[in-house]
């Protein structure tokens, strides 16, 4: 599988960069690129940010996911408390990060 020049991967591990996650995702869309976003480690707390639901809905189900294990490790219920804007199939593993590396020609860590 070759990387798609029209896809931008955003790998989020810090809980301190929501403004940049939203801003870069919006800028990518305006430029005609598809952002693909994976939240893991402490960044899963950003799923409780009021901006998260709109971000998730804007990206679409195939293009945004969170690490279910990180979510559970941080004390959330990955079965009964799926973040607003996500479905159960978007509660993923680190394999989604691997897919980002394969599919996206551009990549940023926040």
């Amino acid at each position: 599988m070759s990387a798609d020049p029209n896809k931008l991967a955003i790998f989020v591990t810090s809980p301190q960069n929501m403004r940049h996650v939203v801003g870069i995702a919006n800028a990518a869309e305006k430029a005609g690129k598809q952002p693909m976003i994976f939240f893991t480690f402490k960044s899963i707390h950003l799923t409780k940010d009021p901006r998260f639901k709109a971000l998730a809905e804007n990206c679409g189900e195939e293009n945004i996911a969170i690490c279910a294990d990180s979510y559970t490790c941080e004390g959330y219920d990955s079965a009964a408390d799926i973040p607003a804007g996500l479905s159960a199939k978007q509660m993923r593993t680190q394999a989604f990060h691997g897919a980002l590396l394969d599919e996206c020609s551009k990549y940023i860590v926040l």
């Binding site: 591990t13 893991t40 480690f41 490790c73 593993t93 680190q94 990060h97 691997g98 590396l101």
Partner: peptide, 10 residues
């Protein structure tokens, strides 16, 4: 630990 776990995932 989580960075190592993420590496294992890759």
């Amino acid at each position: 630990n989580d960075g190592i776990r993420s590496g294992l995932g890759l």
